[in-house]
């Protein structure tokens, strides 16, 4: 498969601005590659280095070490050629406040040399798809967070970029807008768009990304599919059984002996089983229960969250 993004031993160290300041290793020796068509996630807490990494890949930040390539082009050496191939949705609102929503799209396409007819049609189509037609001819001051975010994505798509970069596209959106955004991004990916997204929401990476890199303090801690990442957390799966009667220690001990089980916690009417994997475990537990006369009224399997994974990798919770 063709490589869309290749990052090798990338480093970015910010020098202290004052005498007393300390240098910041915003990106500290990160390597990864993204094949064409992949939906790739960079997951990490505030200050992890997500925006800096995107900054290097989108020519906005000069790396202090290593290389970053977009479709084989060195970002630091060929910034103009790289810019032609990428669409960028930055974390901050950098929409042109002097222009209307439609003009923002049209001028953006004009910067990229899209012909007049094509850009007008494209703008209309994107405004419709992103539900912005009603206020298309207003200036963007006063647009809601969701509208700003949608317009930023529409703008990035105006020149049909090979790779789309999205820096925390759903931060600050209400749940409804967030779900709409997820649908939209899934739709783009389904059409073959290569996407690199950053987020500090576990469920977002889990839901959207084919692979995700977990970064913290500028270092890459893990990189895999969300499912594999979850599997790597010992005891990350949780099976909860609710029972009306018959719960006792021998049942708990029998559960502990089942393959894959890491720990079992028993309360009055509830048993929590922590396990490395879930396959077959629920069936085994139910068989044990009927053998021992335990009346199970409800069962619930919770997949391990990336939240647990982060805790496992760093010893810190994601959300401070």
């Amino acid at each position: 498969m063709e490589t869309a993004i290749a990052v090798e031993n990338l480093k970015k160290t910010y020098q202290p601005k004052t005498r007393k300041g300390v240098e910041v290793k915003a990106v500290d020796d990160i390597s990864f590659a993204v094949p064409r068509g992949e939906f790739f996630g960079l997951l990490g807490p505030n200050g992890a280095g997500k925006t800096t990494t995107i900054g290097v890949l989108t020519t906005r930040v000069m790396p202090t070490g290593g290389t970053a390539r977009i479709e084989g082009l060195d970002v630091a050496r060929n910034p103009v050629a790289v810019k032609r191939r990428i669409g960028v949705v930055p974390q901050v609102n950098n929409l042109d406040r002097s222009l209307t929503a439609r003009e923002i799209l049209l001028f953006h396409a004009e910067y990229f040399g899209v012909a007049k007819h094509a850009r007008e049609a494209q703008a209309q189509q994107l405004l419709e798809r992103f539900e912005l037609t009603e206020r298309a001819d207003e200036k963007v001051i006063g647009f809601s967070g969701g509208m700003v975010q949608r317009l930023k994505i529409a703008r990035a798509l105006m020149h049909n970029p090979a790779i789309l970069f999205l820096d925390e596209p759903t931060t600050g959106l209400d749940p409804q807008s967030r779900h709409a955004m997820w649908d939209l991004l899934s739709e783009l990916h389904a059409k073959g768009q290569t996407i690199l997204l950053t987020t500090h929401y576990m469920e977002e990476a889990d839901l959207l990304c084919e692979r995700a890199a977990i970064i913290d303090h500028g270092k890459l801690l893990a990189l895999d599919s969300p499912a594999q990442l979850k599997r790597s957390v010992p005891g990350g799966y949780l099976i909860e059984l609710m029972a009306r009667s018959g719960l006792n220690d021998s049942f708990a001990n029998a559960l502990r002996a089942l393959p894959g089980v890491v720990d079992v916690k028993q309360e009055q009417e509830r048993v929590r089983i922590y396990a490395d994997r879930a396959e077959g475990l629920l069936a085994n537990a139910m068989r044990l229960a009927s053998e021992q006369g335990v009346m199970v009224t409800d069962a619930h399997v919770a997949e391990p969250s990336l939240e647990n994974l982060f805790l496992h990798l760093t010893g810190r919770s994601l959300r401070e």
């Binding site: 103009v80 032609r84 990428i86 960028v88 406040r97 910067y111």
Partner: peptide, 15 residues
């Protein structure tokens, strides 16, 4: 403040 110029810095032209 606004960082608006970023959209022009991302246009396919040198800084």
């Amino acid at each position: 403040w606004t960082k608006e110029i970023e959209d022009r810095l991302l246009a396919p032209i040198s800084i």
